[in-house]
């Protein structure tokens, strides 16, 4: 097991919600990463953002970790959830909200209006 794999594994297993992304939650550097940030922020979900642009080995390592060729990648309680399309589809159908609640992650339900 490489150091990068160990680093990623540790981040994924010690943080309830982790987003591997380009840029930071404050300054996403890619539209796909930005969409996932918007969804998580909208739901008030506490999460850790990891900027893969800061470390080329993490940028490649996260693709190998889950055998998934693109970034962003969202992990909840150690489980790979998906990239931008999957997170958006789950959010739009309400699955993401119920999934997070089931996992014990606090979700703010915005008022309808």
């Amino acid at each position: 097991m490489s150091n990068v794999h160990a680093f990623i594994d540790n981040e994924v297993k010690t943080n309830d919600v982790v987003l591997f992304m380009k840029g930071t939650p404050q300054f996403p550097m890619c539209g796909f990463s930005g969409q996932v940030v918007q969804i998580l922020d909208y739901l008030g979900v506490p999460y850790k953002g990891i900027n893969v642009l800061e470390d080329e080995s993490v940028r490649q390592g996260i693709k190998d970790y889950s055998n998934w060729p693109t970034i962003p990648q969202l992990y909840v309680k150690g489980e790979f959830i998906g990239g931008c399309d999957i997170v958006r589809e789950m959010f739009q159908s309400g699955e993401l909200q119920s999934f997070l609640s089931e996992k014990g992650i606090p979700v703010r339900v915005p008022e309808k209006g």
Partner: peptide
């Protein structure tokens, strides 16, 4: 699942 479908495409 969604992930399985994406993996098939990828």
């Amino acid at each position: 699942s969604r992930i399985e479908r994406h993996r098939m495409v990828n």
